Amino acid sequence: MHSDPSSTTRVLYLAGWGRSGSTLAERLLDQVPGLVGVGEIKFLWERGLLQNRRCSCGTPLRSCEFWVDVLGETFGGLPDDATARALDAASRRFRTRHLPGLLLKPASPPDADAMLWYYQTLERLYRAVARVSGAEVVVDSSKFPSYLTALLQGPALDVRVAHIVRDPRAVAYSWQRHRADPDAPGDAQMPRMHPGATALYWSAWNLATERIATRTDRPYLRFRYEDLIADPAGTLAAITKLSGVPAAALPLGDRGEVFVPRTHQVSGNPMRFHTGPVALRLDDEWTTGMATRHRYLTGAVTVPLRHRYGYH
């Protein structure tokens, strides 16, 4: 695949295991001039086009002016269901079950030639997002290490990896909570997972992300959710430096809150629908609400990586 270097689109890929704070991080980054956060692009085809779920602006995606313009520039109009299904099927090839291979082998997905059409579509899509938004950098919070390998196949995409991590015990507790997903069909609940399984995924997911970024020599920054809450200005400055845009002051209120305007995130945590003041306070409910046996189990499974990330 040959691309004109002058048409390279910069992508800031927010990686990390689910429930680690990526939606909050993306909403804050969306306020930095030159950056635009668009949610989990991996699920654009299934949740956005085929299921017509809502954009974070509150409008069903097929009616959202932003996405209508983006898809129109990418495809010449909204793609039909057959095209959306083909793209969704291609995206599903980059899934969690590939984690063992990503930990053991170089980050090169199979059938590169057969998937060329898909990688070229992604290049056009991210370029359209940048043009329609007027941003220099597209922020994608898809998080999957496997999907990161798909983005790395497009030479017209300048991918930088911002890797968010959170205390695995807090993450495991979050995966146990009962939470409604107001945008899922049938008012379904958000997925839940046993702490033991969460701990295994947390370790493999984060380690795979590190290895992919290292093996491909991509610009990479790992940051902690806890540090984002404690020092939002400093943490965001480091991330924006990675993205290549000038740092900008984050307007914080007297009580440590930040005003979040309407965004156009295609998928993610339901908090993406909230606009207005958001308090930047540490969610540490796990320290009192998590069962002792679950805390010890999660801690034991994750201990090597957990200590390296500063969680003792």
Rank of each mutant, 00 (worst) to 15 (best):
L148K: 07
R160F: 07
M115I: 01
F75T: 01
L116D: 12
G134I: 13
A128T: 07
M190C: 11
L35V: 12
T292D: 15
V32G: 08
L103K: 06
L242T: 06
R92F: 10
F75C: 08
V137G: 03
A170C: 05
V159G: 06
E73R: 15
P145G: 07
C64Y: 12
A170D: 08
H264L: 09
F223G: 00
K42L: 14
D113C: 02
F94P: 00
A248Y: 09
C64Q: 04
S146F: 09
P109V: 13
A188E: 13
H294R: 03
P110M: 08
A172C: 09
L104C: 10
E257Q: 15
T292N: 11
P251A: 13
S7D: 12
Y220E: 03
L116Y: 04
R85F: 11
E210P: 02
S56K: 02
L152P: 12
P195H: 01
T302Q: 01
R272P: 08
R53N: 06
V132E: 10
R222S: 12
G268Q: 07
P182A: 04
A84T: 07
P251D: 14
R281G: 14
S22M: 09
P304V: 01
L12P: 07
A170Y: 05
D80Q: 04
G72Y: 14
D158F: 05
W17F: 15
Y126L: 10
T121R: 05
S91K: 00
D158I: 05
L28I: 13
V303D: 10
R53F: 01
E226D: 10
G77C: 10
G186S: 05
G34Y: 13
H194S: 11
L122A: 09
A249F: 03
K143F: 10
C64E: 06
L99R: 04
H294M: 02
A89G: 09
D88L: 06
S6A: 15
L87I: 03
P100G: 04
A112W: 04
I239D: 13
T83W: 07
V32N: 04
A180N: 06
S108R: 15
P191D: 02
S142H: 12
V266P: 00
G256W: 05
W202M: 04
E26M: 14
L157F: 12
A25L: 15
I212P: 03
I239Q: 13
L151C: 11
T263V: 12
I212R: 02
A90W: 06
R272L: 15
L152E: 14
M1I: 04
Y118R: 03
P155G: 00
D231S: 13
T83C: 11
T302H: 01
V137N: 01
R27F: 09
L280Q: 07
Q51Y: 07
G244H: 06
E73Q: 15
W117M: 01
G16Y: 14
T235Q: 14
